[in-house]
Nucleic acid binder design. Structure first.
Length: 424
RNA sequence: GGAUGGGUGGCCGAGUGGUUUAAGGCACCGGUCUUGAAAACCGGCGUAGGUGCAAGCCUGCCGUGGGUUCAAAUCCCACCCCAUCCGCCA
């Protein structure tokens, strides 16, 4: 959501940002509506002012027993004109809101330009991709182990679901626990157990709505299943005026995520890469407007640490303008190496949304003693996607006999199990 | 699912048709006093829009949307949300 006054003052910069992000310029349309609306408001307000004055006069006249017929007539005349103006004001406002709510955030200045993911810029690589001869993909490994069952899941729920059993079910749990413990113990995040179903308002606040309803699952009572814990965690700050001194707020949660994947037909149809339901550890930071850039780097580091500790090779890329998400000013993606696919695949996305979400959800902060409030900045990052981390562990730790070594940091979480082998 | 009570500025809270221009309190800010602080006292203190060089003035907003009225926080209708109790339930 944007500040209309800012658009008024910087129409060129506004359009330039939208263009960079691959959206059509909108300043002309927005400002036209804005000008017309304010003209209507001015006329309306003058009429209302006269009406109020006349009404006061009527009250006084009646009290003093005088006749007020002329004033009553004047008010009646005004009332012939106001409903149409009120309706016009309402409609112009609704059009304006509708347009503003569907415009994406503008990219930060240092975001590289590019049409799509091909324009992303690699920042760094960590770890060495292992060139495994005859490396298998995770679904072959999992099914061979007898611990990953897509047929059973299909019978229960259809495509894009998985049943894990035994050591793989535990590995999934272990990964989530490990990540949560890391972020709470070493990165200063507070663990949260949020609702997995939320109101429309919450999804509007983080900007999944109104534009991306088709990506979401909705219950019969009108609640929505969260596509990411970013939604409940960020919305904890909605309608709040936070003390500047208590910022940043650092929140983390391990939750299932639900995605309709409506536009993903034919992509990643095999395996666990793209599911309707998956676990993810999410990190959310609520910061002062001055600190979000530094926090963004810090959060990305926190996500990288997960992969480093797990011994998974990865690279970090800066998303270019054409690949940025709707709410993000700037995003770093972490891409983990998958030997079975012989490529890097996204496993985490860390975004600085600036005040874009904060405006939508009215999340503000104020320094002690200050009168004015400012919108906070919000950041979210996966720390990391558990399902894809499981995929990465399987593929990177696969042995020639089809067994899987358990990464050392997970041993405590696996009850001492160090190797996952075929199991009946 | 049923019943009842509610929704007013950052917070609490008064207000059942026109002296409300939303009382009062808390918090906060400025000042007086004080060695300093506290207390006390004085003043300030919501938001969006319009207009003006400015001081200021004007308009809207009391959960949301309609309606009644010369005039609505106040009356009427619908909806949303919250709390409590009952029922059901992990």
């Amino acid at each position: 959501m944007f500040d209309l006054r800012w658009i008024r003052d910087n129409p060129a910069a506004f359009d330039d940002g939208l263009t960079r992000k691959g959206s059509a310029p909108a300043a002309a349309v927005v400002l036209d509506l804005d000008v017309r609306r304010r003209a209507v408001q001015t006329t309306l307000q003058e009429l209302q002012s006269r009406r109020n004055e006349a009404s006061k006069g009527i009250g006084q006249a009646l009290k003093q027993g005088r006749d007020a017929a002329d004033l009553v007539a004047e008010v009646a005349a005004i009332k012939e004109r106001t409903p149409a103006l009120e309706e016009e004001d309402r409609q112009l406002g609704a059009s304006l809101d509708q347009i503003l709510a569907t415009l994406p955030n503008l990219p930060a200045e240092d975001v590289p330009d590019g049409p799509d993911e091909s324009g992303n810029v690699e920042l760094r690589r960590v770890g060495t991709p292992v060139a495994l001869v005859g490396a298998k993909e995770h679904y072959d490994l999992g099914e061979a182990l007898g611990l990953m069952d897509f047929a059973a899941a299909a019978k229960l729920s259809g495509a894009r679901f998985t049943v894990l059993r035994g050591a793989l079910a535990r590995l999934e749990r272990a990964l989530g626990q490990f990540m949560l413990d890391l972020h709470t113990r070493e990165h200063g995040y507070t663990e949260v157990s949020p609702p997995l179903m939320v109101r429309t308002e919450a999804l509007y606040g983080t900007s999944q709505l109104p534009k991306f309803a088709e990506d979401l699952f909705r219950t019969e009572t009108g609640l929505w299943l969260i596509p990411t814990a970013e939604v409940p965690l960020t919305n904890l700050a909605a309608d709040q005026i936070l003390d500047l001194e208590e910022l940043p707020l650092r929140l983390t949660a391990l939750t299932p995520c639900f995605r309709a994947e409506a536009g993903a037909a034919g992509r990643d149809t095999r395996g666990m890469i793209r599911q309707h339901q998956f676990w993810k550890v999410e990190m959310v930071s609520i910061t002062s407007p001055d600190d979000s850039q530094a926090e963004h780097e810090r959060m990305t580091q926190a996500a990288e640490t997960v992969l480093t500790r797990l011994g998974l090779p990865f690279r970090t890329v800066t998303l270019c303008t054409g690949d940025l998400g709707f709410a993000a000013q700037k995003t770093y993606d972490l891409e983990v190496w998958l030997p079975g696919q012989n490529t890097y695949r996204e496993i985490s996305s860390c975004s600085n949304c600036g005040d874009f979400q904060a405006r939508r959800m009215k999340a503000r902060c104020r320094a002690r003693g200050d009168k004015a409030t400012r919108f906070v900045h919000t950041l979210n990052g996966s720390g990391v996607a558990v399902g894809r981390a499981l995929v990465a562990v399987l593929e990177n730790y696969q042995q020639s006999d089809g067994s899987i070594l358990v990464p050392e940091v997970l041993h405590p979480y696996m009850g001492g199990l160090t190797k996952i082998e075929t199991h009946g």
